[in-house]
Computed example of a mutant assay.
Amino acid sequence: MTAADAATAAALTAADTAAGHGERDSDSDSVVFSRLSVRYQAGLTHLMLNRPHRRNAIDLELAREILAATLLERTAASRCVLISGAGDHFCVGGDLKSFLGQPDLPEHLGAVTGYLHAAMARLAAMPAPLVVAAQGHVAGAGLGLACLGDVTVTESGSTFRSAYAAIGLSPDAATSYRLPRLLGLRRAQRMTLAGYVLPAEEAVDWGLCTESGPPGSALSRARAIAEQLAQGPTQAYGETNRLLAESSRRSLAEQLEDESLTLSRVARTPDAAEGIAAFLARRTPGFTGAASRPVSDDAACRGRPVSLPRPPVSGQEQPMSGQER
């Protein structure tokens, strides 16, 4: 282990001790953290960043809570995940005010990104589609979360920016990975190096967002899409995302072989049989989603503190059981 890895591990251990725990809200099917709320409904998991007074800036505790939410069994069994931000802005990136008070900024940033990146890796590995409602100011790590979505909905008046170079830092939250793939290298360089601020309509034209609506519409539209996807063939969605993600790294022959093998595998699922039968009968299919582990009453849903394990030390490879988005 390098000195940097050891420092990061120490910071993550300290963060484990300091952060709060989520508990179930007795009045609804949800788990409430201090900076994040998680709501479950009909196969849909809604993660809402809940620091509107700070424009949902990500500090150490919020990063931990996002990871904790992805570790809950009900989240892992979701048929669709929706991410949104409370208030007028989705997420402006890291909480710079909290960073300034740290005695060792490199260690602290390693801790924050360790939790956030582990959470993003888990979300990307899920077969369930990920929908993001990105309104208002979207910057830094917030931009990374917006780029992670399979469907990202925005609204007029919103802006997207990298913002890292403006404060003398390099990117995180997979922005250096996702931006070139979504926008192309030159446009990614324009945003990250030149600091170009992308308005909502142009974000759709460039391929960063799926669609844009009138002011105030992003969350309702994203939720409608997420609810529809939550009733779909989850296993087929996951395999489709995996094939799309891996296509750029393969030859045509390799992709064709994987398509054939994957099609045969997905054809064994109950949703495939239901989809074909419904099509032939000219009725709406009743998909049930991919087979998954039984959902147990985890600690959060019993009202007890949620265990928040540390993610791997910075530099270790994250295990990926599914697609890379």
Rank of each mutant, 00 (worst) to 15 (best):
M126K: 13
L148W: 02
R223A: 05
I66G: 09
H21M: 01
S260N: 13
G238Q: 04
L182G: 05
A125L: 05
L47Q: 01
G85T: 04
A68D: 11
V151T: 11
H117D: 15
V197Y: 07
T269F: 02
N241W: 06
Q235N: 07
V38N: 00
S34M: 01
T45G: 00
R51K: 10
E239N: 08
A281N: 09
G94F: 07
A10H: 12
V32K: 14
V32H: 13
D271T: 00
S220W: 09
G87C: 08
L183M: 07
G87T: 04
G303N: 02
L183S: 11
V313S: 04
R178C: 06
S170L: 11
Y177P: 03
A3K: 02
L208I: 12
A119Y: 02
G144C: 08
R249L: 11
P103S: 05
P319N: 06
Y115T: 00
A69K: 07
R268Q: 14
R250C: 13
A299P: 01
R283G: 08
H46S: 00
T75M: 10
T288D: 12
R283T: 09
G157V: 04
R310A: 14
L148G: 08
D95S: 08
L198H: 08
D29I: 04
Y237P: 00
E259C: 15
L116I: 15
L208S: 10
G286C: 06
A273Q: 13
Y237A: 06
D298C: 15
D271N: 05
P214H: 05
W206D: 14
S158V: 03
A18Y: 05
A10L: 12
H108F: 04
V92R: 03
A230S: 01
V266H: 14
A173D: 05
S84K: 12
S34I: 00
E73V: 13
L116Y: 07
V81A: 06
A166N: 02
R221C: 01
